[in-house]
Design a protein around this nucleic acid. Structure first.
Lengths: 356, 356
DNA sequence: CGGCGCACTGTATCCCGGGGAGCGCAGGGC
DNA sequence: GCCCTGCGCTCCCCGGGATACAGTGCGCCG
C-alpha cells in the first residue's frame, strides 16, 4: 500500500517505535471506537482474543500510548479516544484494507456508466454513489482546467462588441464565457482569430496554453498584424475562464456524528465551511498533486472542524490526473472499507470518462 | 400593497373580522416577537403606547386571538407566540412596509451592476446581497428557460457523431449540451441545419420553440429533405436542455434561529431539504407564476421545516417574468424590512439584466 | 513483570423544592 | 357594559443533593 501521509512525520517517535503489543492495543482501540463511537475502556480491549492480556496491563499500555500522543481521554475517568495522531499511525501502519463487495462494485460501475457522457452528470453521480455507499458526504471536484487538454476554442458573435468564447476540452467538458471586444470584429475576422488561436493552443493544457499565448503576445506584437494581436488578447482572457466546481452530496450525514451533533457552534462552522467550497477544493487539489489516494485526518485537512477526516483519490483521464473525489466523514469513519471504495470509484470514473 | 396570499383564505373568520383593538394587540405581539424572539406576555403589550389598556384586557384579547388560531402558547402559563395563521394575518392586513435605506439601495445596485454581464455571476451576487442585507439565507433561481426568449442556436462539431449544441438566450444566458448524431453531418450540413433551425425558433420562448419544432416535424417529414428532418430532430433535443439552477447564500444563518438551534432533528431536516434544491425551486416557481411578491409562511412553503418563511419576488427581463429570488428565514423575520428589500433587489437585477 | 482488586474521580440522571412569569377569573368602579 | 385590579393557580426553569456508573491509577501479590 502506498503511503497515505500528506505530511511527513513530524514527531521524533518513529513509526516503528511501538512494540507488537502496543500496536495491537492501539489497533483494537481505534477499531472499537470506529465501530462504537464511545470512549473505549481497558476491559473491552482486554476481552479481545487478539490482545489477550489483563485489563490492568492494557491500562498500562494505554497510559504509554497517551504519553506518546496517540490517545486521549475526554475527562479523567473516561475511556480513551484516538487522537488525530493516533488515527494517523493507525492509517499508516495498522490499516488492513477490505476490498469492496461485489454489489458495491456493481453500483459504482452502473452509476459511472450511466452518467459519463456529461461531466456534470458524472460529478453528481460520483458524489451520490460515494454518499450512498459510505453514508458520509461524497464529494467530487470537476476536472481541473489546468490539467485538461484543450480540444478547441470557438467564438460566437453575440451582439455588437460581445463574443461568446467556448472552450472544448478533450474530456468533453465545455466552458464558456462572454467577452467584450475592444473593437468590433467581422464574422470572418472572428473565424480567422479562432483558427489562429487553435493553431497555437490545441492539445495543450490550460496552463500551458496561457503561457504560450503570453509568450506569443510578447514576440508578435510588433511583427504580427492587429488581428492576431487582438486574437491573442482574446485568447488570454478565454484561457482564464474559471471553473473548478465541487459537487457535494449528503452533507447532512456529517451532522450525525456524535462528536458534532450536540454542539451548535461546530454545526454552524461546518455548514459554513462547506458552503464556501474553497477549503474543500484546496484539499482535493493536494490530492491531485500527490497523484495517489490521500487520507487527511483532523487538522491536516485544513477544514475548520477538527473531528473530520477526508479520504480522497485522484481520477485520471487517459492516464493523466485531472481531478479528485472523496469522502468526508468523522475521524472515526471506517477507513479500511472507505479507502478502497474511494479508490475504486476514482478508477471507475476515469475509465468511464475515457469512453465517454 | 398587493395581496401576498399564495393561498386563498381557508378559514371562515374573514380577514376584517378583528376589531381595531385586537388588530393592534396582534400587531404588537408579532412585532415584539419578531424583535425579541421570546413568547410575549400581556404586560409587555399593555405597556405599549399604541395599545394602552391594562394587561388583563390584553389577556382577554389574547385569549380571543388564541381561539381564532392567531396565537398559541408553548405551554400553559407562558407568553403567546404567533401561529403561521397569525403571521399570515399580520402580513396581509397589518404590515407596514419600510422602504430600504439609501445605503441598502446602493449596495444592491452596485452588486447588480458589477455582475450583470454573466448570468451565473448575477445569481451569485443576488444571493450574496440578499444574505448580507438580511442576515438570512438569500436565494436566486436561474432565469427559467421556458420563459426566456431564444436569441440563437449554434452547433459545433466535436468528433465523429457528436455535436455540441449551444443555446443563447436574449438575456445572455448560455446553455449547452452534447448531442449524438444518428448519421454524421458535414460541417456545411451542420451550418445549414443551424440556419434552418434559427429561422424557426429565434425570438420564441423555449416552450414555444419546442411546440414549433414538433409541429414542423409532422408537417415536413414527407415534404422536406432528410437534412431538415435531421435538423428538426436535433432541435427537439436541444430545446429540452435542462436548466433551472438555484443559488443559495448563507444557509448557515438559518441555523441561528432560536426555534431551530437546539433541535438536532430539525437541523438535519433543514440541511437535507436545502441540499436537494427541488422544494426550493417549487416555491420560487410559484412566485414566478404569481408574478408578484409572495410571502410563504410555515407549511405554505412546502419546505419541511414549519418555522421557516420565504419572501420571494419575481424578476423580469424586458418586462417578462423570467425568474425569482428571495430570502429564507425564520417565520419571525422582519417582513416589513425584508419584503421591500427583496422587491427592490428583484427590480434592480431585472434592470441590470436588461442592460447587460 | 504481569495480574488483581480497591479507592478515587468525574459524568450522567433523577428528584426535589423554590422562585418567577403569566394566565384566568371574579369582583368592583366609571 | 366596559375595563381595571387583585388573587390564586399552573407550569417552567434552575440549582442542589443523592445515586448509579464507568473507568482509571496504584499498591500489592504471585
Amino acid at each position: 500500500m502506498p503511503s497515505h501521509k500528506p505530511q511527513a512525520g513530524l514527531h521524533p517517535p518513529a513509526a516503528g517505535s511501538l512494540d507488537e503489543r502496543a500496536r495491537r492495543v492501539l489497533s483494537a482501540i481505534v477499531r472499537d471506537y470506529i465501530q462504537g463511537g464511545e470512549p473505549v475502556g481497558s476491559h473491552a480491549i482486554a476481552r479481545r482474543p487478539d490482545v489477550d492480556v489483563s485489563s490492568a496491563t492494557v491500562r498500562a499500555v494505554m497510559a504509554d500510548l497517551e504519553d506518546l500522543g496517540f490517545l486521549e481521554k475526554p475527562h479523567t475517568s473516561a475511556g480513551r479516544v484516538p487522537t488525530s495522531r493516533g488515527y494517523r499511525y493507525y492509517v499508516d501502519a495498522l490499516l488492513r484494507l477490505k476490498p469492496p463487495l461485489p454489489e458495491e462494485r456493481e453500483e459504482i460501475e452502473r452509476q459511472a456508466h450511466e452518467a459519463a457522457s456529461h461531466v456534470e452528470n458524472m460529478m453528481a453521480a460520483g458524489a451520490r454513489v460515494l454518499h450512498s455507499l459510505t453514508r458520509h458526504a461524497g464529494v467530487v471536484a470537476a476536472p481541473r482546467p489546468q490539467a485538461e487538454r484543450l480540444s478547441r476554442v470557438e467564438f460566437l458573435q453575440l451582439r455588437e462588441g460581445r463574443v461568446l468564447a467556448i472552450l472544448i476540452s478533450r474530456s468533453g467538458a465545455v466552458r464558456n464565457r462572454v467577452l467584450s471586444l475592444q473593437r468590433p470584429l467581422s464574422p470572418s475576422e472572428l473565424t480567422q482569430a479562432a483558427n489562429y488561436l487553435n493553431s497555437l493552443v490545441t492539445d495543450l493544457t490550460l496552463a500551458e496554453a496561457l503561457a504560450k499565448v503570453k509568450s506569443e503576445q510578447l514576440r508578435d506584437l510588433a511583427e504580427l498584424g492587429a488581428l492576431k494581436a487582438h486574437a491573442l488578447s482574446l485568447g488570454a482572457q478565454v484561457v482564464q475562464i474559471e471553473g473548478a466546481q465541487v459537487r457535494i452530496e449528503g452533507q447532512a450525514s456529517l451532522l450525525d456524528d456524535k462528536g458534532i451533533a450536540n454542539d451548535l457552534v461546530k454545526i454552524r462552522a461546518l455548514v459554513q465551511a462547506l458552503e464556501g467550497k474553497d477549503q474543500l477544493l484546496q484539499v482535493l487539489d493536494r490530492t491531485l498533486v500527490a497523484e495517489e489516494l490521500q487520507i487527511f485526518i483532523g487538522a491536516e485537512s485544513g477544514i475548520v472542524e477538527p473531528d473530520l477526516a477526508i479520504v480522497a483519490a485522484p481520477y485520471r483521464l487517459k492516464g493523466e490526473v485531472v481531478g479528485a473525489l472523496g469522502v468526508i466523514g468523522p475521524t472515526r469513519m471506517d477507513y479500511s472499507r472507505i479507502a478502497p471504495l474511494v479508490e475504486l470509484t476514482a478508477r471507475t470514473i476515469g475509465l468511464a470518462l475515457d469512453e465517454g
